[in-house]
Design a protein around this nucleic acid. Sequence first.
DNA 1: GGGCCCGCAGGG
DNA 2: CCCTGCGGGCCC
Length: 757
Amino acid sequence: MAHVSDLPCDGDGICMVCKGKPSPDETLTCRTCATPWHVACLSAAPPTMADAVQWECPDCSLLLVAAAPAAGAPEPPKAAIAAAGAGAPCDLLAAIRAIETDDSLSELEKAKRRQELLSGGARAPEGEDRREKGNGVLDILDGSLNCSFCMQLPERPVTTPCGHNFCLKCFQKWVGQGKRTCANCRHEIPAKMASQPRINSALVIAIRMAKMSKSNSENAQSKVYHFIHNQNRPDKAFTTERAKRAGKANACSGKIFVTVPPDHFGPILADNDPERNQGVLVGETWEDRMECRQWGVHLPHVAGIAGQSSHGAQSVALSGGYQDDEDHGEWFLYTGSGGRDLTGNRRTNKEQCKDQHFEKSNEALRVSCRKGHPVRVVRSHKEKRSAYAPETGVRYDGIYRVEKCWRKVGIQGRVVCRYLFVRCDNDPAPWTSDEHGDRPRPLPIVKELKGAKDLTDRKDPPSWDYDAEKGCWMWKKPPPKSRKRYWGMEDGKGMRRSRKHMSVREKLLKEFSCQICWNVMNLPLTTPCAHNFCKACLEGAFAGQSFMRQRTCEGRRTLRAQKNIMKCPSCSIDISDFLQNPQVNRELMGVIESLQSQALEEEEEEEEEEEEEEDENSESSEEADGAQNNLENDAEDRENDAEDIENDDAEGEISEETKLLPKPEAETEKQEACKQKAENPGNCISDCVRSDTADAELPVDLNNQEDAEDEEANMAVPESNARQLRKRKNCNDVVSTVKLDAGVATKSKRVKMAAAI
DNA sequence: GGGCCCGCAGGG
DNA sequence: CCCTGCGGGCCC
């Protein structure tokens, strides 16, 4: 914490605190304003050399809390000071720089002006920490930030290059009158700013911080965290050898960091975030769609709608791909997908050449409309026409509901599907300075509804709605049951598998897995919100005596202590009453038991078949160990010879890399054994209540590894024992779900798999 | 800034 | 297995 006694050195190098002249070794230079400071007189000196290099003086470090590194226009100092008083923190920096470069001032005067500027013109009494209780931020606000039109703190602020702030609406009104100069200082407004104003999110945060520090100084810090750029950057998406030519354009998805299934509706909660244990917060920003995907918010990396026509849509992206889109922040009009000719090289074609219909993902959105499901919304910087889009990257803006949908003739003369989205999130939107989330609001008047065809709106109460008593949005009906398996095991990607054949065991896992340990339930409990858990898992989680088992993105399982939770781990509905006297769902248990015996039978049969096949093909499978010859022989491999050569090269490189992986083989085996063990549905309870250390030191006898697999052949592992063995033969430590029988995992898949590991 | 190109992922 | 999808890098 900086104190008011922190003062820099003046123009003669004299410390303004001790009045001595420190040697260069005793001074630190701020990396932002380049002011020298006497180290000995600083209330908090940087702890290490590395910190010292990147050191920021107490004044700048305060300013930079929310500042975006935008350069303000250079101005004469007086104007600069005025602008700074009225501007966002980045304008303050601009003003500081303007002072520094003003030759008419002596260094002492410069220092004085800096101090005046930073303390809002009025210095706090000596000895009192002016930053205590967030007053520093409030000083910046001090009325001078107000919109020049309405004289209020700007609502959805936009900032001109000359450093003046206006409400978005006031600004648009002004510009709409044909005005092209700043209402404050008459500087010219650039044409781009006039036509495409963007909300100054740094200022939004500053205002909200100040508001919160007034009303609730203790919680301010944790709240503000929502708006800090994604600090814990995940492992990046990766590229195949061949795709590296085009860089990230052809990237494959990296790890998925959350444990929600791909068709998860609603916010990503802390329970599903083993990485950070905080869930995905409104305002989180990612570099691109791939990164956004990795946090489970919007999965398709090209398509705008994530959803299934029979199930509903989970999320949408606003990326400016469709002219008809209309963004008003808390509500927007969205256009369906399709109707474009994307064949051949016309993948980027923006022209509608066919009518859109309510089918596929368009139908999925309509289902979400009818049911009132929560839909996650991300905005991309590519949406240029919206003031609410982020400057860079892809940002999570929270939960919306589709209130109506219809079809109309679009701007390009073809029929398009249209959706009215209205925000309904418990957290405030990134562009509002409100401290609270949305409240139910009346639907906006949409003019185009008059000419709408096929209008659909909701007949039944929505599944996601506002609870007036609790004062928050929540599931009012059980959320749609996931039809897919959770993320993040084996290949580090989704759970896509061949759909030709789903074993009974897989069905069991898919339909009857505990939402805590993700194994087939043992003594199933069904909560009032229709989520299923093992009795031991659920009770254990709430008793605080045992541990929740969660998957990491690498497929390993971790044990994570869960304390003081009385909310459903899946949907956060309060289930305290249910937990008073939870009854095992006998009916469900019966079904599971019968399916388990079916699964056993099926797996025994399959195993026999596999063994027979293996005897017959033993020679060829030995050849398959050579792997690469098969690539060339594979009739299904449609890639041409030239590509094959390239493939081989790539594979060579990768196998080299694979060999060089620091992970010792024993450890890999251990992890796999651990994973397989964990997947044993029969072991659910013991798995769930086992201690941390038990998991970490799971005894693995490598020599008996294959015996162990024999014993576990009846488990949930969807591939038969024989196939697992063959798989291991074929691709060493690469665990894959791609077809391996013929040894034909294509090179890109192999490279990808290697990279995933 | 727009077109080209390549690639991945998912729905059906 | 095919088709489609509001990506992203590079070249012009």
